[in-house]
């Protein structure tokens, strides 16, 4: 028996997300009296892999092979389920991000393993196996029983803190050989923005809504984000109007994020918007309407004109951060 955790690497490097996953898996392994085994697909250097040991991975599996450099859901699921089989994994943990959403459902059917999608903490109990998750776009939560013997969990991003538990894991190499024509997905081109803090990675997010009045008013918002090392976001109408790029749109129909701190400037706080940001640890709302629904979701607020408050806020941050 073991807990297998699928860690994602970006061009051979891990991010905090991967360490969160390993921390989670090793805590879960403790609950089940077993150990956590981490796996990674693609070329990752030994010293990078060893970083997973710091968070409790007792063993690390590196799967490489020609054709495995692009995400083909079927071939990747073959590889993960082979490894899970060999390691007698009873629980497999993935992130509830783009990658996890692509792989976990297929894996669930392949292994006839019930899927707890988007869990935000450790299981409430392991016998019976009950997990806790958000439902109805954050309007409720549920205890979900997983009945099957094998289980798959996808962990919501930024919902589990890093826990150090140093191990000196052995690294095992698995080479995947694919039959000709096995890879169905043919990637023609990749377009990537570089140098920007990704919305889904960011711990602080500075977001603006229609109350910002015009795209010309975004300068101070970007400056505040820069000062805080934050990513920028916006409400749907703002991206629909073309004031801000589409990747920044958060909410039910945009990105779902869970930063430590979310600033909402001139955002009314419609349910569909909150569906994407309500898991933030702290929400700060700046809105001219004291009755705006965003204040019901926020811990901290200022009633007033966002455009006038922003420069003062920037000054205060500079002062306190000693910049």
């Amino acid at each position: 028996m073991s807990v297998l955790v699928f860690t994602e690497n970006w061009d051979g490097k891990f991010k905090k997300l991967s360490f969160e996953l390993v921390s989670y898996a090793s805590k879960l392994a403790e609950m089940l009296n077993t150990s956590a085994i981490a796996m990674s697909i693609g070329t990752v250097a030994d010293d990078e892999l060893q970083k997973l040991g710091k968070y409790g991975a007792a063993k690390i599996i590196r799967a490489t092979g020609e054709g495995m450099n692009i995400l083909d859901n079927q071939t990747w699921v073959n590889s993960i389920s082979d490894i899970a089989e060999k390691e007698k994994a009873t629980v497999i943990v993935l992130s509830n991000n783009i990658m996890g959403k692509a792989l976990a459902p297929r894996l669930s059917v392949r292994m006839k393993a019930g899927l707890g999608a988007g869990v935000s903490g450790l299981p409430k109990s392991t016998e019976p196996f009950v997990v806790y998750k958000k439902v109805f776009s954050g309007n409720a939560f549920a205890d979900v029983l997983i009945r099957s013997e094998k289980k798959i969990l996808t962990l919501s991003q930024n919902s589990f803190q890093l826990l150090e538990k140093p191990e000196v894991p052995e690294i095992m190499n698995v080479s995947v050989s694919l039959e000709a024509g096995a890879v169905k997905t043919q990637v023609k081109d990749v377009q990537k923005q570089t140098g920007k803090i990704l919305l889904t990675d960011a711990e602080v997010v500075v977001s603006g809504g229609r109350g910002m009045k015009s795209p010309d008013n975004w300068g101070p918002l970007l400056e505040l984000a820069e000062l805080l090392g934050a990513a920028t976001a916006c409400s749907r109408p703002v991206s629909d109007e073309g004031w801000r790029p589409h990747e920044e749109h958060t909410g039910q129909t945009g990105k779902i994020i869970a930063p430590n701190l979310y600033f909402a400037f001139g955002i009314s706080g419609a349910t569909q918007h909150l569906a994407g940001v309500s898991s933030s640890k702290f929400i700060v709302a700046i809105n001219s309407d004291k009755d705006a629904p965003i204040f019901e979701a926020a811990q901290y607020g200022i009633v007033g004109d966002a455009i006038k408050i922003l420069p003062k806020l920037i000054e205060a941050v500079k002062e306190i951060k000693g910049k």
């Binding site: 439902v135 029983l145 997983i146 009945r147």
Partner: peptide, 10 residues
């Protein structure tokens, strides 16, 4: 394979 046992309001 799964079943909701109980709901909770925020």
């Amino acid at each position: 394979l799964t079943e909701v046992l109980k709901y909770e309001l925020p």
